[in-house]
Amino acid sequence: MFISEQNNNKEIENLLLPAEQLDCAVAFVGHGAEQYFKNKKSARLICNLTTGSTNPDTIQELQKMGVALKNCSNLHAKVYLTPNTMIVSSSNLSANGLGLEEKEIKGWRECGVRIEDSNEIRKAQEWFNGLWNESEDITEEMIEAAKIEWKKRRIARPRTDLNHNFVDLVLDKSIELKNREIYFAVTFEYYSDEVDKKVNELKHESDLIAVYEDWDDLPENAYLIDIFVGPRGGIQFHGIYKTPQNKKLLPITLESGEKENLFVCYEVDGIDDYIVSLYDIRSRLKEYLRVAIAEYCPNREAAFFSVDDFMRFID
């Protein structure tokens, strides 16, 4: 039976949820796949973990659930098998090769075929068993490597929300901003005199250069929305900065003899192709930021937190 795009995901769900025995060879697996493997007498899953399009956190959750897992690094099939029925589909388990998952995959046109012929199911089961024997066990080292590739894919994934207004997306808690390398960087002190002098020297090279003093763990290749909190709690927005793809640390020795690093970054006009202004952020996000700053900086210590994390403070 042919399954149209209108019914494709529902048919897969109807097959997987009640099944007591389940074998799946599905290239890419993402958040939400866990629900299909609960309360099974037996469940095996072959996925493609190494290309960066499978969510390694989901794989770890499936391991905890007792699902038997293997990796096939050139798998691109999507085959869902139960003892009496199988579906061959274009749909992955909540993810696809673009690194999209959850609501991000809406709008992608999928279809499949539902098969109940026992002879065809037997052939598919033989194919699955052969692939299972050829595939490799998933180790902790593979998962850690996959986390790096997954993060790269998520950062570079295409836009799925047509709204380009940054603050609107934040207030909507849009999944579009999830895992993007965009952060709020909060400080409470101005530069020391020595650092201020060094910054002025650097600005002879470029007016766009900015630095963060003794803050080596700032993320690379990321946008920083700079926030300064005064002694009475007033919030100032100084600018938007971009950190280099390869961290640039400038060593400096203070008059006290103490050595520090200056994290060099560059002032930018915006964040990718989002419509964003500091006035918009200040007027619409300021009160939410007060709550976030109170949690992340309880002792008035500098901190940075992602926009993704910040959105949980939106009520």
Rank of each mutant, 00 (worst) to 15 (best):
R44S: 06
L45Q: 03
C47W: 02
T51I: 03
N55C: 08
N55T: 04
D57Y: 07
D57S: 13
T58F: 00
T58C: 06
I59M: 04
Q60M: 15
Q60D: 13
Q60P: 09
E61I: 15
Q63T: 08
Q63Y: 11
K64N: 13
M65W: 08
G66N: 08
V67Q: 05
A68D: 12
L69C: 10
L69F: 08
N71H: 12
N71L: 06
N71V: 06
C72Q: 14
C72P: 12
S73P: 08
L75W: 10
L75Q: 10
H76D: 07
H76I: 08
A77L: 15
A77F: 14
V79W: 10
Y80F: 15
Y80N: 09
L81T: 06
T82N: 07
P83W: 08
P83V: 03
M86N: 09
M86V: 05
I87S: 05
I87N: 04
V88G: 13
S89N: 06
S90P: 02
S91H: 04
N92F: 03
L93T: 01
N96F: 03
N96P: 01
N96D: 04
G97F: 00
L98P: 02
G99M: 01
L100R: 04
L100M: 09
L100C: 03
E101D: 10
E102T: 12
E102G: 07
E102P: 06
K103Y: 10
E104W: 01
K106Y: 10
K106S: 11
G107H: 02
W108D: 10
R109S: 15
E110P: 01
E110F: 11
R114D: 08
I115K: 06
I115P: 08
D117P: 08
S118C: 15
S118K: 14
N119G: 13
I121Q: 05
R122H: 15
K123W: 14
Q125K: 15
Q125S: 14
E126A: 15
W127S: 15
W127V: 15
G130N: 15
L131K: 14
W132C: 06
W132A: 05
N133T: 09
N133H: 14
N133R: 12
E134V: 10
E134P: 10
E134Y: 13
S135G: 13
E136M: 06
D137I: 14
D137S: 15
I138N: 00
I138G: 05
T139S: 14
E140S: 11
E140K: 10
E141W: 07
M142P: 03
E144N: 12
A145Q: 06
K147Y: 05
K147T: 00
K147D: 03
I148W: 02
E149Q: 04
E149L: 02
W150A: 05
W150Q: 00
W150R: 02
W150F: 00
K152M: 02
R153V: 01
R154F: 00
R154Q: 11
P158I: 03
P158A: 05
P158G: 06
P158D: 00
R159I: 12
R159V: 09
N163I: 11
N163W: 04
H164P: 04
N165G: 04
V170W: 02
V170H: 02
V170S: 02
L171A: 04
D172F: 08
S174F: 03
L177A: 07
R180G: 00
R180H: 03
E181I: 01
Y183N: 01
F184Y: 02
F184W: 00
